[in-house]
Simulated scan of single mutants.
Amino acid sequence: MPIEVDESERLAEIADATVAVANERGTRAVTLRAVAERLGRSTAFITNFVPSRAHLMVNALEHAQSHWRTERASLLRDATGIERLVAVARWMCSTTPEDNVLRSLWVEVIGDVRGDTRRAYDVVREVTDATYQEFVASAEATDLEHPEYIADILYLYCRGFHVKTVEDPEAWTDERVNASLEVLLRALLGPRLDALAG
């Protein structure tokens, strides 16, 4: 009798191994062989679930997307108005070690949108578009003047942070970025930001 395989469990293991390889050796080192070695498996085992390098990236990003959605929903569950807008911005400007690796994969994907990498790009766009819509909805739920521009400014600030953490992670730390984010939030929201802290 054949052993039942939990495909979602296998894909999660492959996603974790993909991120681990990228973290240890850089995103260019992510290959089917490297991921198979990391898992102590054959390349044929990996291709049974993930047929190409591009699909490795899709799989890793899809797993991250699921995690980010859950995390964002939990963070924002009871937040409304300006509190929600500020929470989205602060969440977007936080980093885990895995986030830096996934951002590196994201930068590689948007640099080459062809063939199989198109699906990885689509996953990235789904994540970034959903976050942008969260900024817009949160800003529009306030009484701020020009909420659409405030949403644009905060979104672009956070996305710029993501690129800079890939380009120069030593310089663009969470502490540095969040200090300037607080200045930006104060400039955009004025006394309303103080009211949140009070």
Rank of each mutant, 00 (worst) to 15 (best):
A34I: 03
A34T: 06
A34V: 04
V35P: 06
V35R: 02
A36R: 13
A36L: 12
E37W: 01
L39V: 06
G40C: 03
G40D: 03
G40A: 04
G40T: 07
R41A: 14
R41K: 15
S42A: 06
T43K: 15
T43N: 14
T43E: 15
A44I: 10
A44R: 10
A44L: 11
F45T: 11
F45N: 02
F45G: 00
F45K: 01
I46N: 02
I46E: 07
I46L: 12
T47S: 10
T47Q: 14
T47K: 05
T47A: 04
N48D: 13
V50P: 04
V50N: 01
P51C: 03
S52W: 07
S52L: 02
R53C: 05
R53Y: 02
A54Y: 01
A54D: 14
H55E: 10
H55A: 15
H55N: 13
L56E: 07
L56Q: 10
L56G: 08
M57P: 02
V58Y: 06
N59A: 08
N59K: 04
N59Q: 09
N59E: 11
N59C: 11
A60D: 09
A60M: 04
L61N: 09
L61D: 06
L61C: 05
E62C: 05
E62R: 15
E62G: 01
H63L: 04
H63K: 12
H63V: 03
A64T: 07
A64F: 14
Q65S: 09
Q65E: 14
H67F: 15
H67I: 10
H67R: 15
R69S: 09
R69Q: 15
T70A: 15
R72E: 11
R72P: 00
A73W: 03
S74R: 14
L75Y: 09
L75D: 01
L75H: 10
L76I: 03
D78L: 11
A79F: 05
T80N: 10
T80A: 15
T80F: 13
G81Y: 03
G81S: 10
I82R: 06
I82L: 14
I82P: 09
I82Y: 04
I82T: 15
R84Q: 14
R84E: 10
R84M: 09
L85Y: 13
L85A: 08
L85P: 05
V86C: 01
V86R: 00
V86E: 00
A87S: 14
A87F: 07
V88N: 03
A89K: 12
A89S: 12
A89H: 11
R90D: 04
R90G: 05
R90S: 02
W91V: 04
W91Y: 11
W91S: 14
M92E: 13
M92R: 13
C93S: 09
C93G: 01
S94A: 12
S94K: 02
T95I: 09
T95P: 02
T95D: 12
T95H: 13
T96V: 06
T96M: 03
T96H: 07
P97I: 08
P97N: 04
P97T: 04
E98C: 07
E98D: 14
E98Y: 02
N100R: 15
V101W: 08
V101A: 02
V101F: 12
V101M: 08
L102Q: 06
L102I: 05
L102N: 08
S104V: 03
S104G: 15
L105S: 03
W106F: 09
W106E: 12
V107G: 00
V107R: 11
V107C: 08
